[in-house]
Computed example of a mutant assay.
Amino acid sequence: MGIRKKSTKSPPVMSHEFVIQNHADIVSCVAMVFLLGLMFEVTSKFAVLFITVQYNVTISTNGPEETAISHFHHGIKDLATIFFYMLVAIIMHAIIQEYVLDKMIRKKHFSKTKHSKFNESGQLSAFYFLSFGWGASIIFSENFLSNPSSLWEDYPHMLMPLQIKFYYICQIAYWLHVLPELYFQKTKKEDIPRQLVYIFLYLVHIAGAYILNLNRLGLILLVLHYFVELLFHVSRLVYFSNENRQLGFRVWAVLFVLGRLLTLSLSVLTVGFGLANADNQGFDLTTGNFNILFVRITVLAGVCLTQAFMMWKFINFQLRRWREHASVQTLKKKPGPSKSKAKKDKANGVNGVSSHAADSPRFRKQKSA
């Protein structure tokens, strides 16, 4: 994310700068239109499509006291709901940025690189924390951990409780909102490809689990992944406040590898063994059954390739850090210049960042971040 520079000079109305500076207010007005639509009978039916969760199915349970339980399935109307909550995500992004992150940044004197990373980690830490806590509460309330076979038994899991469906809608909405945020936050051109790659991966995996009725497996894998990512971004925020605190990165490195192994194990167990040995083999759009060999292979291939890609990026990241650390240790072992030589270099301006930036402590700290 780029650094937003506030100017006392008001930009022209509807110009790029005007939209960027006031995008939160503009989006809030659009969201308010849908909320006001609920107040009038003529528009309420239209506004409900955007605000409330659609495709409600009531199931009656037989017993001493007959009760009705509401479940939901997915459909094309979910796009309207996702659009509305994407607007909510943009508003929440702006609130966190203005009232939390910007106030913290004013107390620090970050470089442009650290400024961008601090904003990114601050936003993602808030999202991962809420998503992890919410997802973990759903897993415990639905008893998925106590009964792992529920991940593939009674497939397809087309009917979902309200909290699971709303969780997926919010997840898709959040990662879609990151796309316009690339423009609103003035993201650097060289950072856009990296951002687009991980946005695409999130959307494909979350929407894939939602559409293919693998919502139980997807929920557990998301919570596991979000926990590891939360640790990384919190560790980076702590590192920016005190660069000597790097224990969190070491813990994250171990959990990252374990998380990849556990993700592969659960995916193979559920898709490769559980669904492969299920009785309801076949393809049926009306019942939401996608339990055929081609779909199973595609799902496993997608998960395996993504985990391999993440491990490749992780290994390259660690190797780069080790090389930088080794180069720093090598420089420390070299004998320092004589006092006269140092004074001469300093006088000529070659003893600082201008000529030997790689040798300065400040530069090393920025690279290690």
Results as ranks from 00 to 15, higher is better:
K334W: 03
L331Y: 06
L124G: 11
N244H: 09
S125K: 08
I292H: 02
S137C: 08
V353W: 12
W175A: 00
W175Y: 12
T8F: 03
L124F: 09
L231R: 08
G302P: 07
L159Q: 09
Y174F: 15
R364W: 04
I95Q: 12
K165T: 13
H157C: 07
S137L: 13
G288Y: 00
A347M: 15
R250H: 13
Y99F: 10
S10R: 12
N213F: 01
G133F: 05
V57R: 14
Q54H: 10
V48G: 00
P337R: 07
Q195R: 10
C29Y: 10
G63R: 13
F34A: 06
V228G: 00
F110M: 03
S141F: 08
H157E: 12
T270D: 00
G272D: 04
Y202G: 11
I76V: 15
V204K: 06
R260H: 14
N143V: 15
F363D: 07
H16G: 11
R364E: 00
A276T: 03
N280R: 06
G133R: 09
P337F: 11
Q97W: 00
V223Y: 04
F140T: 10
G248M: 09
G274K: 13
L331T: 11
S44E: 14
K186P: 07
G208L: 02
N213K: 03
D25M: 12
V53K: 03
Y239E: 05
K344L: 09
L258K: 14
G218P: 02
Y85L: 02
M32C: 14
H16M: 13
A68G: 09
S70W: 03
G302M: 05
V254H: 08
Q246K: 05
G37N: 02
H115L: 14
K114M: 15
Y198Q: 04
L212R: 00
G63M: 11
K346S: 06
N280P: 12
G135D: 11
G274R: 08
K117L: 15
L319H: 11
S28K: 11
D78H: 04
F50H: 01
T298E: 02
L196P: 10
F40G: 05
P361Y: 04
L182C: 10
L293V: 01
L36N: 09
P148I: 06
N119L: 05
F309V: 10
I199K: 03
T330I: 07
F118C: 07
F40Q: 14
L182K: 11
N22V: 14
A80V: 14
K343P: 02
